[in-house]
Simulated scan of single mutants.
Amino acid sequence: MKLLEVLNSSTSALKGNGIEDARLNVELMLCHIFSCDRVKLYLEFEKPLSAGELDIMRNMLRRRLKGEPLQYILGETEFMDCRILVNPSVLIPRPETECLVEVLIDDIKSKQLTDVKILEVGTGSGCIPIAVSKELSRLNVKHKIVSLEISKSAIETAEQNKKINDIADDQLTIVERDFLKMNKLSNQINYLISNPPYINATDYKLLDKAISGFEPKVALTDESDGLTFYRKFLHILSEATYKFSCIFEIAYDLSEKLEDLMKENSLTDYYFYKDLNGIERVLKIG
């Protein structure tokens, strides 16, 4: 079969199963197989696929028809111009998480910091600290990021991403640690950042199967009210000895509940930032 025939038949199959952006999905699969961009793909429409290439395409198509996210099928995605390897052990990076990185970088620039120490809780694929490290290097800001993660398989993926993005060991260290079991943090850090599991148990059951059926549950929900990690963060921050700032991604419906928690912990210096959709997505404290 020629490339155009494969493109058209595969697009029809995905459309028939109600998959959005069917043609784009197929184009990206074919680009992955041929290691080319979409422009070159369009110049090769008459190119026949080998038996091996057809087998790869059929396998990818079967997986997509079962609802598996395209990013897992391709094995990678992009986050803020960083190539990020992904698999079912890590959450697929979302565009809205870029807001967290932007708030952090803007705050560092506004304070004119030249040497920054950051603690991240729950690194997953490592997309956040990698994007932060790259931008701080571009700005000539010396930095040390320590990222905590409970999943061994996620750590392996994050280490791979650290390597392919040329992040030095003295800039980013990934540590296996259960943050919820920690009682103290270093007061030498400037920032505590996190995109924690914030989907509550009820909403998790309502998630699209493309998410709950493939992405790691531990990265999506605390299996409670969605506030478990924030309670821990705020309890630690309420202790007078801690002077660092906190920047967290939050769920679309958590701002009022978080304000109540901050009042309980006598925290008044905070601000909610909206994402591109006008949704309160990031909370900065301090």
Rank of each mutant, 00 (worst) to 15 (best):
G124R: 07
D269S: 07
D253F: 01
I73A: 03
N161C: 10
L207N: 10
F214Q: 05
S245V: 02
L61A: 10
L30G: 08
T114L: 10
K243I: 05
F248P: 01
K274H: 08
S147D: 07
L136I: 11
K232Q: 12
F248E: 06
C99F: 04
Y198V: 05
I73G: 02
R58P: 01
E149F: 09
M1I: 12
I285L: 14
R58N: 14
I174P: 07
K2E: 15
C36T: 15
E20I: 09
D225T: 00
L206I: 07
I84N: 13
T228S: 14
I285Q: 06
L207T: 08
Y273A: 05
N190A: 01
K15Q: 15
I92G: 01
R231S: 06
M1K: 15
P88E: 12
P93N: 08
R94Y: 09
R231H: 09
I211L: 11
Y72Q: 04
S245Y: 04
H32A: 11
F179A: 12
Y242D: 06
L276Y: 15
Y273G: 02
L91S: 07
I167T: 03
T268M: 02
E159N: 09
N277R: 11
R58V: 07
P216L: 09
D37H: 10
G124N: 11
T114C: 06
L261T: 01
V146C: 02
I118W: 02
N195K: 08
S10N: 13
S89M: 03
E280A: 03
I250E: 03
I236S: 05
K257M: 05
E5N: 14
G16V: 02
S12E: 14
